[in-house]
Design a protein around this nucleic acid. Structure first.
Lengths: 226, 226
DNA sequence: TGGGGTGTTAACAATTTGGTAATGATGAAT
DNA sequence: ATTCATCATTACCAAATTGTTAACACCCCA
């Protein structure tokens, strides 16, 4: 059972390892981004907003721990799972890593098969709250597992961004999400998009759903409510 | 969408770059202060208390890293975002910059458009969602998360400024807020508005709420009370 | 290789808002 | 009672913000 469409960033300086692991993860439906050093890892993390980041400890430019420290300092990576790749008995790294907010460790060497199963289990861990429980509000049911929305049990096909936007707003019904919040969560903090982009997506959602469940709060943002 | 009225200090010794960047940032509603060397940067930073400081690394008098080091040593610049402009592959500066508390790096050359987007994202980062708790007084419930006010559970739609004003007054029920206090808190200290502006907003709140919960204290200000 | 779906932008329309001016009340001090 | 400063009210306008539409580039897949 694969968590479809999840993004994984892997940073390691050994091309072979990168190749093998990313190939296997892709086979299992994950979207994989790779980086060869610490700086690249930070850059690509910001650009792509992955759900899981796997960092080799020993890397050129910045080591995994530094990368973790820098990423964790930014709110947008609060929720991201960060995992270290370590040599088998490197206790010191374990300790340091935990201090800076690592979620777990994977010991090298590791077989691709075990790697995939570990990755699956990471997502199982965080998916419990949202994936198991689809959001259901009034006549609207949002099922992240299926990337699908139902209105009165009628399936409604939203595009990826539309779905993510709706799902995000619906995660806290009634709460206003600032345009800034929406941008950094859905688009990532370093993406260049124009002012009207959010509006257009909101419009498409409203149009496809046919009912008015997204309220504009002028000068502030949008909120989902029945 | 722009963090309006934010002050940005840019320090670079090349007038052309200064010109282009500051023009574009101003277009997007930012207030821009410029400096041509390190000493000037420090001086203007102290004078203007900008929200974001962009420092070229290579500058006359003091280089960007020295400036950063000096500013960071002062408590008033603890919260300020400091960012370096660096040549593309200047790894050494990256490392040193981090040591002295830089928040990020921008590689030169950079297009104005990307610069603006980066600046936007810096402010997005610090514009944390305010998870303030709801205020409940008598039959009135003020929920900042929702930008919404309820009277006897009936939702009342206030405009942004109206809501902020009511929320501010209600933050300390019974206390009188001077007109000056209200002005600097809700309108900001730099904005100049006429005498009657507050009154009009108070009036609109009273009208929409339908009950008299804002008391005028003549010659002093307003207070919220049931 | 071309067609459908997707994401983004530009351009313009529609709407809301924030602010002001003008004028009318109020009330305390003279 | 008159005066003066202060606040209330109203209507109006400009600016800010969002809605809408169409067009475009892109990617994936048949």
């Amino acid at each position: 059972m694969v968590s479809a469409g999840k993004k994984i960033l892997i940073a390691d300086d050994e091309p072979d390892i990168l190749e093998i692991i990313s190939y296997n993860l892709q086979l299992h439906g994950y979207e994989v981004i790779t980086a060869r050093d610490g700086d690249q890892a930070i850059l690509k993390a910001k650009q792509n907003q992955p759900d899981l980041i796997i960092l080799d400890i020993m890397m050129p430019k910045k080591n995994g721990i530094e990368v973790c420290k820098i990423l964790r300092a930014q709110p947008e990576f609060n929720e991201t799972i960060i995992v270290f790749l370590t040599a088998l008995n490197d206790e010191l790294s374990h300790v340091k890593g935990l201090e800076y907010g690592a979620d777990d460790f994977i010991s090298k060497p590791i077989s691709p098969k075990i790697m995939v199963s570990k990755v699956n289990s990471f997502f199982r861990r965080i998916n419990k709250p949202e994936t198991t429980n689809a959001i259901e509000l009034g006549d609207i049911r949002i099922v992240p597992d299926e990337y699908m929305v139902y209105y009165k049990d009628q399936p409604i096909n939203l595009a990826k961004k539309e779905f993510e936007l709706l799902n995000y707003l619906a995660s806290k019904p009634g709460r206003v999400f600032l345009r800034n919040e929406i941008l950094s969560r859905i688009w990532g903090s370093e993406v260049i998009v124009g002012d009207r982009t959010i509006d257009v997506h909101i419009r498409k959602i409203r149009q496809k759903l046919g009912i008015d469940c997204i309220t504009t709060v002028k000068g502030v943002g949008y909120k989902f409510e029945i």
